[in-house]
Design a protein around this nucleic acid. Structure first.
Lengths: 279, 279
DNA sequence: TGCTATGTTCGGCTGTGCAGAACCCAGTTC
DNA sequence: GAACTGGGTTCTGCACAGCCGAACATAGCA
């Protein structure tokens, strides 16, 4: 219950390290290189910049980069040697998604929902209450949201997160919020526990969650949770578009469409006899 | 021109190593772990198995795995600790595809083509003549091909490869075939240079390439190349389905649909003012 | 022509990552 | 239930691999 104590398990994992005595340093460094390159702007990143963010010498960063390049995890783009993520990551990423059958199961549903609504649609799995998006179908329109896959989003600012939270017990929600807090993202972000409880109650009543510019200004989002064969909440389906003063009726229609999609996913999940669908 | 000489650049990259003096061993080992896990069957792989395929001690493999797990590149699935590719690879893979804008550009076109034909559609870029698929839209139907992204396919067994080859000079094609050979995949695979030349000539005449069970038994595939703003061939669009005695008319219609899609990609590529679209 | 940025190469010291052995633990088999 | 056979985990010590720093090459800029 109380948080101030907390035995002392947070000691080692304070910084990025998480060195649990078996961590091999150079590998951890190399992985950090990958993260660094991923976070770099579109035009790529130089060895020197990598060395700076890693806090290592240029020659060390150079060796790591060369190793990653030789295996296709990074690619060198001239001029002025700049590095991008490589083909091997496309390959492994594609393969990794196969490990989450849920994503593949959702895809046709997302496709249909995207066609019906004209919006970008996504599916998230619940990682202890946090939504992690694992599948996406971009809207046919020109507007592109930079919606990353595989990252743990905040539970209280995304509609998918709130759809998941709405099905958790009050105690679990409070415990989760203890950990993560309620950081503000926009002026409309929910920042108090009572407001969150109210919103979750409303979500339960109407059957779908709404994110009205609470995560990103100008972005509107609706989501509904889905369950596995045992009724356990495993994730949510969401549709995202730009905020343009939708009428209450439009929102309701959208909400129901998303709900139908989520139900379809629930059915497909129960259907696919294979247990698994882990996480 | 001649291939037999070849200064001596193939010395070091003989085995998997490619240790160009700056390679850091433990990182290379860790990357091999990722490849190993990726190649493992769906139910995952154990530390011991990894150690065996790596040819290292259990404890070494254990350290590497722990490091990768702590960073989310692998995930542990009980019971009987088995490892799968992790969420970080989904994230980086998704991010990596952003580095190939071509993929994102193609997506709506592939979506449309998939809707029109009911088939799985893909886009490949040409890596020195070899096709590498970087985008895919699965067919809505139940049949799923295991079509991996990011892997270098054989040029002579895939329709995308032949579509690309058909636009290369005879000399370049011969040089390429010298390197890769014409390995047989099915009983219908083209295995002689003259047959290949004939097929490429036919491809040029009709404007699209056909793979009639030449790569996988029972799989039929049609592809057309696309070009960048300078007219340089940068890749191909393909549609894949099961072979079911399509009529000549049906094949022709399919071919033209794929051609239209490829032309659409060419237009979009030239259109998107940004040079880049590298590789 | 300097100046400062980059990438690249080298050699030497130190620390770390490796192997191996020992230890658990769970499931089989007799 | 004992013996056996996998698995995973822990520990120690040594050798060498991986770091750093310094030096060099090169490119852009004032």
């Amino acid at each position: 219950m109380s948080t101030q104590a907390g035995v002392e398990p947070t000691d080692a994992e304070s910084s990025v390290g998480a060195r649990d005595r078996y961590t091999v340093g150079s590998v951890a460094r190399a992985l950090t290189v990958l993260d660094t390159v991923a976070a770099a702007p579109d035009e790529g990143i130089t060895v020197s910049e990598i060395a700076r963010t890693l806090g290592t010498s240029k020659s060390t960063a150079f060796s790591l980069v060369r190793t990653l390049v030789s295996r296709g995890f990074l690619r060198e783009v001239h001029p002025g040697p700049r590095y991008h993520l490589g083909m091997a990551l496309v390959r492994l990423g594609d393969e990794a998604t196969r490990g989450f059958p849920l994503g593949r199961v959702c895809e046709p549903v997302l496709l249909q929902l995207s066609r019906d609504t004209g919006l970008t649609t996504r599916a998230a799995i619940s990682d202890h209450g946090y939504p992690i998006f694992i599948a996406r179908v971009d809207s046919p329109g020109a507007i592109r949201f930079h919606t990353a896959l595989g990252v743990r989003e905040l539970p209280h600012t995304s509609s998918a997160g709130k759809a998941i939270l709405s099905q958790m017990s009050r105690g679990d929600v409070e415990a989760l919020i203890q950990d993560t807090g309620l950081p503000r993202r926009t002026r409309k972000t929910i920042t108090t526990l009572t407001d969150l409880e109210l919103d979750l109650e409303a979500t339960r009543r109407r059957g779908y969650a709404i994110d009205d510019e609470e995560d990103v200004e100008g972005v509107f989002c609706v989501a509904a949770h889905f369950v596995d064969r045992n009724g356990k909440v495993t994730g949510a389906v969401s549709a995202t578009g730009i905020k343009l003063d939708q009428s209450a009726r439009q929102i309701e229609e959208l909400g129901h469409a998303v709900q139908r999609a989520a139900n379809a996913v629930s059915a497909l999940v129960s259907d696919s006899g294979r247990r698994g669908l882990m996480l």
